[in-house]
Structure formats: structure tokens, C-alpha cells
Design a protein around this nucleic acid. Structure first.
Lengths: 213, 213
DNA sequence: TACATAAATATACTGAGTATAGAAAGCAAG
DNA sequence: CTTGCTTTCTATACTCAGTATATTTATGTA
């Protein structure tokens, strides 16, 4: 049982991490991110205060615990696109696919409502979300440049990446707000795809003549 | 001398504020934002610690002390545009005007190099800059909607505002980086206007058929 | 059993930001 | 000029996130 034994420590570590994350998420949803202290989380999870920081360097990391997954879905769509499909087209197609058959790591509107509202209620969480978006844009610029064999500092790659993030961000925000007003997933999906499609057209025009379109 | 006398208190207050701002800015440039404490600023400005917070609720406010002015330049360009000129066109024209005859409140590249590098070296300052951008996008959406007599929650206004912020942000960042590499203001200006122009075309395509183009 | 390593923890610290009460300065009116 | 009102400034004491460091406890291996 050497393999299982060798992993017990790792398993226990992950259990501790998950416990902290679960307890913290529950408290954040109940009382709002800003009204929960690290001490309370440590107490509720029955661990020492330093253990919390050991697993989550920043308080916000307990809330945004799936950053990487969403990012990977987008990058995979670009990297595994069919020959003859441009990166921009591939991302537009991804949006439609996500609406038709939602990805488990990428839930939309109804499924994210409480999560998004909790995030929007906290300046710290909004700040962290903006930072994540920034990091995403940087990484996306690299992926785009690689995808069409251009240097990573190609200004067009950065323009494309930034515009894509804007379009997705506005589309999601508007769909979320519409869902909040009407509680209608279909209508939210419609405005989401409409904004994505019009944005995609715009990005195509801005990048016309380059390899990204 | 009643008028002058009645304003002495106000004048003194502004002097105190300016002193703090000047001292803080100097320290930030010398040693980096994150390596200057509020206590040091208070000490160097010869005021009490609470006086600093009295004038600048957040540490970052001592660095970004001209947010509003830049915002006003952009909004004025939209609101005072000629009849027959669309908001998007007016902002495109503003970019060219700023390059030809730089606005005192809106210096570009060379004039902002140290300022920008200092901001980029600090996570707190970058976070504040992102927040300012977010606020700007929200306000810009309102100005755009008002300018073409559309409701302020018009999704198109938000799409336009977000795309504009992206384009300007990328254009400025790329120009700044190019200036850092080559120390050539002309080349920086060229890439800035090129990205603005291509972005403007893209925004026009995304918003085709609306009143914003 | 003995040794090595990783995880958890205790303690003490830094620094931004808040709350509050009080001191000092400016100002108006008698 | 002094009395009383308002604004600005300041001192004190706090909260909370995050860091540094050393120590303990649990686990894995020889």
C-alpha cells in the first residue's frame, strides 16, 4: 500500500483545503465577503489562522477558486480549432456552444447569480476580478499570437485580446443584469449572444488584414 | 477684506492638501509606492497622521490626483462635438488632437513615463487604476447614451464604452512600451494613432446601425 | 526505532484604514 | 477683544489582512 500511503498526506492536505474553502464560501454567501474575517473562517473550519493563509495567500482566493478552469476552456477553443477557422471565429463559436450545452466549469446566468451578486457587493472581490481579467488578457494575447505564428509582443494580439475581454465582459454583465430583472434565462442568453456576435464583427473589422480574423 | 478673510481657512486647507500631495508624490517616485508608509508621509509633510487620511481617504488617492480632469476632456469632446459627428468619431478626432497639441491635463508618453512606470511597479496602484477605468466606462456609457438620446441602460452604450476604453488602453500601453524601448515620441505617437484608428473602425462595425457610430 | 519531511500552528509583528473625542485655528458678532 | 460657533487638525486606541519566523505535530521512509 505504498502508493496509497504516499498520497495520504496529499489527500489530507486537499481535504483541509476543501474544508476551508467550503466553510469560507458558505460564510461569504451568508454574510457578505467583507463581513467575514479570516479569524472567523479559521475558527469555523477548526484550523489555525496560519493554516488558512497557508492554503490561500489572499482572502479573495477562497472565493475565486476556479479561475484557471475557465481560462483553459477559452484557450482550448483557440488551440484545438479546425483548420481554416480563425481564433476570433473559434471564440465566437465557443460562446454559442456554451449557451447550447453549458460547460460544468463555465455556468451562465441563473447558475452564477448568487456568486456574481456576492462578488459585486464587495470592492475587494471586484478588484480581484479586475486583476484576473487583466491577467487573462495578457495570457490570451500570448495564446493568440502563438496560434497565428506572430511574436508575442505583437500589438495586434493585445488589441484583439483586450477587445475580446471587453466584449465577453459586457455580454456577460448585460445578460446577468437582464436575468436579474426578468429571471428569464432565454432572454439573457439572447442578449448575451447578440452582444458577442456584434462584438465579434467589430473585432473582425478592427483586425482586418491580420491573421487573427 | 471680508472675502479674502472668509477664504483664508479654505486656502490653508488647500495648502495643507497640496503639501501632503507633493511630499507623497516625491517619496513615491523616489522609493516606490509600496515602500512609503502613511506615517512617513505625515512625518515628511509635518502633519498628523489623521490629517493625511482627512485629505486622502486612500493612499492611492495621493498618487492619482487628476482622475477627473482626464475624464472631463473625453466627455467634453463628446458633448461639444459638431452636428453630424458621431460620439465615436469625436473621440477618434480627440486622439489626433491630443497628439498634435498635447492637452496640459493629458500628457502622453515621454511626459508620463516615470508616472506610469511607478504605477506599474505597484499592485495597489494598478488595482486603483483598474477601478478608475471601470468607473470611467460606466460614466462614459451614460454620456454616450445621453448624447444620442438613448436610455442610460442601453446595452449598446455599454458595449461602445467598454470597447473605447479597451482601444485607448491598448493604444496607450503599446505606445508607452514602445517609447520605453526606443525613446522615440514620434514612433510612439504613430502606433498610438494606428491602434486608435483601427479600433475606431472596429467599434464602428460593432455598433453599425446604432446612433453611436 | 530512528530519521526526514511536510503540514499545521503559535507568537509577534507591519501597515492601512476606522472611530472617536478633543485641541487648535479661523471667523463672525457684540 | 472676547465670546461663541465652525472647521480643520490631531492623539489615542482600535480592527483586520498579510508577513516572518520558529516550533510542534503528523506522516513517510530507511
Amino acid at each position: 500500500m505504498s502508493k496509497s500511503a504516499a498520497e495520504r498526506r496529499t489527500r489530507k492536505r486537499l481535504v483541509t483545503r476543501q474544508t476551508i474553502s467550503d466553510v469560507a464560501t458558505r460564510l461569504f454567501f451568508e454574510r457578505g465577503f467583507d463581513h467575514v474575517t479570516i479569524d472567523e473562517i479559521a475558527e469555523a473550519a477548526d484550523v489555525g489562522r496560519m493554516t488558512v493563509f497557508n492554503h490561500f495567500p489572499r482572502k479573495e482566493d477562497m472565493f475565486f477558486d476556479r479561475e484557471q478552469e475557465m481560462r483553459d476552456v477559452a484557450f482550448a477553443a483557440i488551440q484545438t480549432r479546425d483548420a481554416g477557422t480563425s481564433p476570433i471565429q473559434a471564440l465566437g463559436a465557443l460562446a454559442h456552444r456554451l449557451i447550447e450545452q453549458p460547460h460544468p466549469s463555465y455556468p451562465l446566468f441563473g447558475g452564477t447569480y448568487l456568486f456574481v451578486e456576492t462578488a459585486l457587493a464587495s470592492e475587494s472581490l471586484k478588484a480581484r476580478a479586475r486583476q484576473m481579467r487583466d491577467d487573462f488578457v495578457r495570457a490570451l494575447a500570448d495564446v493568440l499570437a502563438d496560434a497565428v505564428n506572430r511574436p508575442r509582443d505583437d500589438p495586434d494580439a493585445h488589441l484583439a485580446a483586450s477587445l475580446i475581454a471587453s466584449v465577453w465582459s459586457v455580454a456577460f454583465t448585460q445578460a446577468h443584469e437582464l436575468f436579474g430583472r426578468k429571471r428569464d434565462t432565454n432572454e439573457a442568453s439572447r442578449i448575451f449572444l447578440d452582444l458577442i456576435d456584434r462584438g465579434t464583427v467589430g473585432i473582425g473589422a478592427a483586425l482586418a488584414g491580420t491573421a487573427y480574423i
